[in-house]
Amino acid sequence: MTEPVLELRDVNKSFGPIDVLHDINLTVKAGEVLCLLGDNGAGKSTLIKTLAGVHKPTSGQMFMDGKAVTFDKPKDAADRGIATVHQFGGTFPLMTIGRSFFVGVEPTRKIGPFKVFDRKTANETAVKAVQEFGITRIDDGDRLIGGLSGGERQSLAIARAVHFGARVLILDEPTAALGVKQASHVLRIVLEAKKRGIAVIFITHQVTHAMAVGDHFAVLIRGAVAANFMRGEKSREEITDLMAGGEALADLDTAMEGYMETHEGHPPQPASRATVA
C-alpha cells in the first residue's frame, strides 16, 4: 500500500478550557477521498483548520509522507501543498478570475526596468486550468468572481488549488449552498482531482454527496473519531445514522421505543412537555 500523504496521531485541540478534539487518529492517501462527517459542532472545521495551519494542535503530531510536520501559520501548510477551499469558493467577489487566481503569485513580464502584472498570461492560465476540469462556460478571465455561480466558484477554487500543486485538498462543505445540478458539477470536480492523485478531505452533511465520491469515511462525534471505515463497509442507512449523530440517534430510538411501550403506543406529546418545562 502507498504511504499516507497526511497522517494525524493522537491530535488534541483545546481552546482554553474547552476541549474540541480528542485523540484524533486519521490518515489520507493520495488519490483518496476522505469524507469527514459529523453533526454541527462536532469539530470538523476545527480539525481541518488544524490541518491547514490555522490552529496548532494542543498535543499530538501530524505527519506528511511519514515525516513529522508542524505548521505555525496557514502559509506553512500551503507551502507543503495543503490547500483549503471554503464554502463560497472565491473569496474576492470583486476581483477578476485572472487576478484572483494568482493572488500572491502574480505572473509578471518586463517592460523596460519595470515588472508589470501579466494580465494576459494570468487570464489564459486561469481559464485553461478551470476548463481542464470540464467547466467550459468560463472562457473570459476578465469576468468578476462575484458573477460566477456558486458551483463555478467552487470549481475555480479547486482548479486553482490543483494548478498550484496541492497534494491535499480540503473542502469544507463545498456543496452546502448548491442546488442539485451545481453540486453534481462540484462532485465531478472532486473526482477529477482524486484522479490526479490528490488526497481530498471532503466535509459534507449530505449522505448522497458523501456516498457519491467517498473512498474512506470518518465520523466525528463530540470531537472524537467515532467511526472510521472504507467504502462498502457500511450501508447508506448506517452512514445516515452516524451522520445524524450516530449513537445519539440510536439512543433516541430506544428511548422512543421504551416510551411507546410504557405508554401504549402513544408518542410523547409536545404540549405536555411544554407545561412541565
Binding site: 473569496t91 474576492f92 493572488v103 500572491g104
Partner: peptide, 28 residues
C-alpha cells in the same frame, strides 16, 4: 495608476481590501 493596475502590489491591494484573511494566507 501604473502601480495599482499594473503591478503585483496593486493585485495585493485589491485582495487585501476584498478579504484580509484570504490575502494573508498566500503570504501577502
Amino acid at each position: 495608476w501604473a502601480v495599482v493596475h499594473h503591478s503585483r502590489f496593486g493585485n495585493w491591494l485589491f485582495a487585501m481590501g476584498g478579504d484580509k484573511e484570504s490575502a494573508r494566507n498566500p503570504g501577502i
